[in-house]
Simulated scan of single mutants.
Amino acid sequence: MPINKDSNAKAYWKENLRYLTILLTIWFAVSYGAGILFKGPLDNFRLGGFKLGFWFAQQGSIYVFVILIFVYVRLMNKLDKKYGYDVE
């Protein structure tokens, strides 16, 4: 862990932004890619009686977003502990 508090904070935010970028890219790929771009090929498969492309457009991207929220919370808890920002 760096001694300098300013460099510690910069490293923390750099890693935080990297996590955000990765998670939002995953969400974009699932919501836009699976729900819009690849809807046609995905509609050949069914999930719960619905075409898979339709399911991703209506519900799948929301489920993925909620899962990504929990992943982000877990990553941020680890990041807080790593840089000493956890308060318990």
Rank of each mutant, 00 (worst) to 15 (best):
M1L: 14
P2R: 15
P2C: 11
I3W: 10
N4C: 15
N4W: 10
D6M: 10
D6P: 03
D6I: 10
D6T: 06
S7A: 13
N8K: 13
K10I: 11
K10Y: 10
A11H: 00
W13N: 12
W13Y: 15
K14I: 07
E15N: 14
L17N: 13
L17T: 05
R18D: 07
R18M: 14
R18T: 08
Y19S: 00
T21C: 13
I22H: 04
I22P: 01
L23Q: 08
L23N: 15
L24V: 11
L24Y: 08
T25F: 14
I26K: 03
I26Q: 02
I26M: 06
I26T: 06
I26C: 07
I26A: 02
W27I: 04
W27D: 05
W27G: 05
F28Q: 07
F28I: 14
F28A: 13
A29T: 05
A29M: 06
A29K: 04
A29P: 00
V30Y: 01
S31G: 09
Y32S: 01
Y32F: 15
G33S: 03
G33N: 07
G33D: 01
G33H: 07
A34K: 07
A34E: 00
G35I: 02
G35E: 01
I36R: 12
I36T: 14
I36N: 09
L37D: 04
L37K: 12
F38W: 13
K39I: 03
G40Y: 10
P41A: 00
P41C: 00
N44G: 10
F45Y: 07
F45N: 07
F45K: 05
L47N: 01
G49F: 02
K51Y: 10
K51M: 08
K51D: 12
L52A: 12
L52E: 08
L52P: 15
L52S: 08
G53Y: 10
F54M: 10
W55V: 05
W55F: 06
W55L: 02
W55S: 02
W55K: 02
A57G: 08
Q58N: 09
G60Y: 03
S61D: 13
S61A: 13
I62S: 12
I62H: 09
I62V: 13
Y63W: 10
Y63A: 06
F65K: 11
I67V: 06
I69G: 04
V71L: 07
Y72D: 02
Y72T: 04
Y72Q: 05
R74H: 14
L75I: 00
N77V: 11
N77L: 14
K78N: 12
K78G: 12
L79H: 15
L79F: 07
L79Q: 11
D80L: 11
Y83R: 00
Y83D: 02
Y83S: 03
Y85L: 08
Y85C: 05
Y85E: 05
D86M: 02
D86W: 00
V87D: 03
V87R: 04
V87A: 07
E88Y: 03
